[in-house]
């Protein structure tokens, strides 16, 4: 199992390299000079050449990519000063250190993703369990139809509706805002409450349906019946036998959904105007700010791959057949 994880880690690093290479080369396929942006309105060819040199844009693309990679591990020197490792370069548009910008923005996106994850796991899986337990009853039908409706609730639609209803009309909830958790836990919590709920609606609906169907499947398994046959209580069998078995398909889907979760967090930031990685990513692409785009891409991808590794490790915890093979 350890071997498997090590192998997966190597795979993740390779994936990361490929992602950055593809992004980097795709950027230069766009037929527009990124230096024009930094040059401003009164741009002369001479000024442009200087900027090219400063940004390293005068060198061949593969060399630029190589320098970029070296910078991540060893740091680089720019006209504006030294950029120490991990160095993702300097923003084309505002000359800020990219790594510092990401470090500044990342906690918001991470809070949003992890918070949303916790909300939909608890609500979605719980609702699925209740529906499965009461299969065929009114509760099951209400849960099932609600999840069908909610699964089509897109964040950018639901966001404004919720804002209008709970913030502007009634004032029950705080307007979404970013307060670092270090400053005020309650401020952090209240500021992110609406974004968490809104972004997790679709996931909650999907996980309700999934946990319901895998539970119903598991409850028909022979080992569940066998556990009942030896006198274990239905409650014990429900959680210790059936639920245990349904964790594996759920974890599998979760692993595949992590990218979507991160994407969901970014859409949520943009919808509520929160200053996270999502907005940064959008702005950097519009500004053709290569270092910033690269930085956001790599850090986001690294996080998704890290979560995927955690999911792989979870298999081993859940299933002895994986652990002992």
């Amino acid at each position: 199992m350890l071997q498997f994880l090590i192998r997966r880690t190597f795979g993740a690093i390779l994936t990361l390299f490929l992602i950055s290479a593809v992004t980097f080369f795709m950027f230069f396929a766009i037929p527009q000079d990124p230096a024009l942006l930094a040059c401003g309105k009164n741009c002369t060819p001479d000024a442009l050449a200087v900027i090219h040199q400063n940004l390293g844009l005068d060198k061949p693309v593969p060399v630029q990519f190589w320098n970029f990679l070296v910078g991540i591990f060893a740091g680089r020197d720019f006209a504006v000063g030294h950029c120490s490792a991990p160095c993702f370069g300097v923003s084309f548009s505002n000359q800020q250190n990219v790594w510092d910008t990401i470090v500044d923005r990342f906690p918001l996106t991470l809070s949003l993703s992890v918070g949303g994850l916790i909300v939909f796991l608890i609500v979605g899986l719980g609702a699925g369990l209740i529906a499965a337990k009461n299969k065929g009853t009114a509760i099951d039908k209400v849960f099932s139809s609600a999840s069908l409706v909610l699964t089509s609730m897109q964040i950018y639609f639901l966001g404004p509706v919720v804002l209008g209803l709970f913030v502007y009309s009634t004032g029950w909830l705080d307007k979404p805002s970013w307060v670092p958790i270090g400053e005020s836990v309650s401020g952090w919590f209240m500021g992110l409450l609406i974004p968490w709920l809104v972004m997790s609606v679709i996931f909650t609906a999907n996980y309700t349906r999934m946990s319901r169907s895998t539970m119903i499947e598991q409850l028909q398994e022979e080992h569940v019946r066998a556990a009942r046959a030896k006198g274990m209580s239905s409650r014990y069998v429900f959680f210790r036998y059936a639920w245990r078995g349904s964790l594996i398909p759920i974890v599998t889907i979760l692993g595949m959904d992590l990218g979507a979760l991160f994407g969901g967090a970014m859409v949520t930031e943009i919808t509520f105007g929160l200053p996270g990685i999502g907005r940064l990513a959008r702005d950097s692409v519009i500004d053709k700010d290569l270092p910033l785009t690269m930085g956001v891409m790599i850090v986001s991808a690294a996080f998704i791959l890290l979560f995927n590794l955690i999911v792989d490790a979870m298999y081993a915890v859940i299933d002895p057949r994986v652990r002992l093979s």
């Binding site: 398994e221 022979e222 080992h223 019946r225 066998a226 556990a227 036998y241 245990r244 078995g245 859940i318 299933d319 002895p320 057949r321």
Partner: peptide, 10 residues
């Protein structure tokens, strides 16, 4: 009948 399915793998 089938101990493989009747015993929990976990």
């Amino acid at each position: 009948q089938d101990a493989l399915t009747a015993l929990s793998p976990y």
